[in-house]
Structures are given as C-alpha cells and as structure tokens.
C-alpha cells in the first residue's frame, strides 16, 4: 500500500498517543508500588514528591499489614477461598447447562432458554435479594457470596454458542459407539473447549475477586472473619464507612499512606498474576462473545 506523507505523520501521532495512553495506564500502578515501598523518613525528606521508586525501598509496610494477627492475611485467605469455590461451582454448572442446551434434539431446550432470558431481564432488586438470603438463613454465611452468583445466563449462552459450533459428527459418533452423555461431555467435548472454559473461568475469577458489595450487604461486623480483601480495602478507604479500620496505624517507620498503598498492591496483584493467561484468549472469537455479555 502506497502511503502518503500525511499518513506517515498521522501514524506518528497515533504512536505517540498510544504511548501516552499506555503510560497513563501504567504509571499509577507503578507509582502505587513505589509509595508502598517508601519509608517514612524518605517520604518526609522528599516532601512527598516521589517520582517513581524510592532510593532505599523497604518492605516494612508489607511486614506490618501481614503482621501477627493481621486481618489482611485472613481476608486474603477468604478472598482466595471465595474466588476458588465461586469459580469452580459457577463454571461447572454453567458449562453443563450450556452443553445440555447445545444439544439440538434435547426436548424442552427452547423453553429453558426462555427461563434464562427471564433472569437476564428480571432480577429482584437489592432488597428482595437481601430478604431471600435472610429467609434462607444465609446472612453472615459464606454461601451467601457463592450461591446467588452460580448461575449466569450470559455465561450459559456463551458456552452454548461455543458447544453448538463444535462439529456434530463427534456427537453422533459417540452416540453410535454407545458413549454415555456425561462421558461424552467430560472426555470429548470438554477437552475441545479449553478456550471458552478458560476465558469464562478467568472472568468469573476476576468478578469474584473484585466483589465487595455482597460482603457489605450480607456479612456484618460481628462476622468479620468472612470479609474478603476487597471489602477490607474498601472500609479502609471509604469516607462513609462507620467501621473503624484499626489495622492501619501511623508511626513505626512507614506512613499511613504507604500502608494503604501496600494494601492496594495486595488487592490487585493476584489479578495482574492471572492477567497474562487472559492474553492467550484475546485472539479467540469466544472472547468477543464473553465481552459482549
């Protein structure tokens, strides 16, 4: 393609703009890391003007928030537990339902899809959901964070779409061979579906990790052992929460800000760790379906 001078200049502008955007997205994260490693002495000597990293980084803030009897460690454990249980249950159920609905000759398939569409449009608001959880005696219970989030109509539809796209011959051959339906799913269909399972799984993971709203609604202060890390960070920052966040105290060599930033790093580091795995699915078509959902 022949390119004129104007196009070259335009591309240069685009390259600069893209670089600026990337910098804008990356710098705050690095800065947060920098602050979390900064000692109080250095912070004051620099008048709080840290460009990126401190000259003498210290892990005191991390040692402090993970110190003996720390809430953060418990909250982190709870976050991991919730993410693991929530993701496994949700992906298992949604994949199975998606598979069931992908079978063309399954009697009752369309009616079930209508039920799922209903859930997309009509969900009880905040208060009915709260009342249901209360009625089931699930308040202050771990499962209040899991059960309502298991069935996701969008994810089921994405799964269904993917499974429908698989060659029909596999299915037919297996039926002729007399393979049971469950075996067919586990042994043949599932191994062919790693992209969709992984991308939905990763999205579900992120959603569970990031969720703090359920905790705020369903878990009270007396059951703070069920608090997840995100909620914990939230009450440490939120101006409206009346809960005293007693873990973060000034003094002892690192400032309050530094400790808060260390907490923030802990809050997003797991996401950054699984992020590279996302990348593999960016190219796949399934990803778009998941995005649209």
């Amino acid at each position: 393609m022949v390119r004129g001078k104007g196009e070259k200049i335009f591309e240069a502008v685009c390259i600069v703009l893209a670089a600026l955007l990337a910098l804008l997205c990356l710098y705050p994260l690095l800065y947060t890391l920098g602050v979390s490693l900064c000692s109080e002495a250095e912070w004051t000597s620099r008048n709080g003007l840290l460009v990126l990293f401190p000259t003498r980084p210290t892990f005191t803030a991390y040692r402090k928030i993970f110190g003996v009897g720390s809430y953060v460690l418990k909250a982190l454990g709870m976050s991991f537990l919730r993410t693991a249980v929530g993701t496994v249950t949700s992906v298992a159920v949604n994949a199975l339902v998606g598979y069931v609905l992908s079978r063309r000759d399954f009697p009752g398939k369309n009616k079930y899809i209508y039920l799922l569409l209903f859930t997309i449009f009509f969900s009880g608001g905040l208060i009915p959901n709260y009342l249901v959880i209360k009625e089931l005696h699930l308040l202050n219970n771990f499962w209040a964070m899991i059960l309502p989030n298991i069935v996701s109509a969008w994810n089921i539809l994405v799964f269904k779409q993917f499974f429908t796209g698989l060659p029909k011959e596999i299915e037919e051959a297996a039926i002729v061979d007399g393979t049971g339906e469950i075996k067919l799913f586990l042994k043949i269909v599932l191994p062919l579906s790693t992209p969709v399972v992984a991308s939905i799984g990763l999205f579900t993971m992120v959603t569970h990790w990031n969720n703090w709203f359920d905790v705020m609604i369903y878990i009270d202060q007396a059951h703070s052992s069920l608090w997840t890390l995100q909620y914990y960070i939230m009450i440490n920052f939120n101006n409206l929460s009346q809960i005293d966040s007693s873990v973060i105290i000034g003094g002892s060599g690192v400032s309050q800000l530094t400790q808060r930033m260390a907490l923030t790093i802990v809050g997003f580091l797991p996401i950054l760790c699984i992020y590279p795995f996302f990348q593999r699915f960016f190219k796949d078509g399934v990803f778009l379906g998941a995005v649209k959902g």
């Binding site: 893209a18 670089a19 955007l21 990337a22 997205c25 990356l26 705050p28 994260l29 800065y31 947060t32 602050v35 992120v206 990790w209 990031n210 969720n211 703090w212 995100q230 909620y231 960070i233 939230m234 920052f237 800000l257 808060r260 930033m261 907490l263 923030t264 809050g267 997003f268 996401i271 950054l272 992020y275 996302f278 990348q279 960016f282």
Partner: peptide, 24 residues
C-alpha cells in the same frame, strides 16, 4: 504491547481504582 497494558485497569475493582486514585 500497548493494548496489553491499556486493558489492565478494566480488571481492577472500583475499590482498588479508588485506592490508586486517592494516592494522587
């Protein structure tokens, strides 16, 4: 490379975003 970086903040919770912004 640029796209990889700019997608990152989408995956953070609002809690974390608020925490990062508050540092500024």
């Amino acid at each position: 490379a640029v796209q990889t970086i700019v997608y990152i903040p989408h995956f953070f919770s609002w809690v974390v975003i608020y925490a990062i912004i508050s540092a500024f």
